[in-house]
């Protein structure tokens, strides 16, 4: 039997998709469903027994768990910071380094370099920077004569989270910069020239032309920054294990599951994290679709 061209194309499409879709199911959908199931059980590693269905007990418990409230609050703070620090910083760097700037390529490379370094190495580096006795920051304070302001960056409540987010932003800003630079390169030059001829100054061009046209890049940068902020585990763990009020949902998920061995409860935390990420991803895709329609 000879298949029609359309049927043949469908068959081939399906054949090519079978392997990646199977893999996606095994490594993403399967664990997601398993985690969702575990979150409804009382499973603990230490019981080494089969999980027993416990309904919404773990979720009810989350509502009264102060540590969870702190972790959730910190995660939301981190998301907001992700909108400001790496995104804003990346945009400023991109604007400064775009065009004919002397040594721009060197600076671009330097600012992008941290994104190529493992987060564990970044964390170790900042560990040294924040060390109270001989770390770079306190040494600087000492050098300018304010030794009595010895700051315990990673063990002071209210400061520890900010110090960790700053270290994270330091790494992420290079990624935002590169995406914004790509956006700036693709801007239509004739539009900026026309604005110049019409008497628009730099600030007006920036506000009325450049930033609106960077909207597609901004959506990518913001989405990446926010999603990366939700994965904030390794940096926090290495710097202070989420102590002094700096825990995030990802850290709590690890602690509950692998330290306190409450796999059911840890799964409930991870489902909350998943729900937040899912909402952001849906908003992101809807935004991208709207932009595609706009540009079409």
């Amino acid at each position: 039997m000879k298949l029609s061209l359309k049927a043949s194309q469908r068959l081939w499409t399906f054949a090519f998709l079978v392997v990646p879709l199977s893999l996606y199911f095994v490594v993403v959908i399967g664990p997601l469903l398993a985690t969702a199931w575990l979150s409804l059980t009382n499973y603990t590693f230490s019981a080494f027994a089969s999980p027993e269905f416990a309904g919404l007990v773990n979720y009810q418990r989350l509502t009264g768990d102060d540590y969870f409230h702190t972790s959730l609050y910190n995660t939301l703070i981190w998301m907001v910071a992700a909108l400001v620090l790496p995104t804003g910083g990346g945009l400023i760097l991109a604007l400064l380094l775009h065009g004919r700037v002397r040594g721009a390529n060197v600076f671009k490379s330097l600012f992008y370099l941290p994104i190529t370094i493992s987060m564990i190495v970044i964390a170790q580096t900042w560990q040294w920077m924040y060390q109270p006795d001989w770390g770079l920051l306190n040494t600087l304070l000492k050098t300018i004569g304010v030794e009595k302001w010895k700051v315990f960056w990673l063990s002071t409540r209210g400061l520890a989270l900010g110090a960790i987010i700053f270290a994270w932003s330091w790494q992420q800003v290079g990624l935002s910069m590169v995406i914004f630079l790509a956006g700036l390169t693709s801007l239509p030059g004739e539009m900026l020239e026309a604005a110049q001829i019409d008497g628009a100054n730099y600030r007006q061009s920036l506000r009325r032309i450049v930033i609106p046209l960077l909207l597609p890049s901004s959506v990518v940068v913001i989405a990446l920054a926010v999603i990366n902020s939700l994965r904030s585990f390794d940096l926090v763990w290495v710097l202070n294990e989420g102590g002094s009020g700096s825990s995030t949902l990802a850290v709590q998920m690890y602690r509950e599951t692998f330290k306190s061995l409450r796999a059911g409860y840890g799964s409930a935390v991870s489902m909350v994290l998943f729900a937040i990420a899912a909402v952001i991803i849906v908003i992101y895709f809807r935004r991208v679709r709207r932009l595609e329609h706009l540009y079409d």
Binding site: Q131, P132, D133, K150, F152, W153, L154, S155, T156, N240, G243, S244
Partner: peptide, 11 residues
């Protein structure tokens, strides 16, 4: 010492 939670055992 001040800020014990800022140090590890090697410190």
């Amino acid at each position: 010492v001040d800020g014990a939670n800022a140090y590890d055992w090697v410190d």
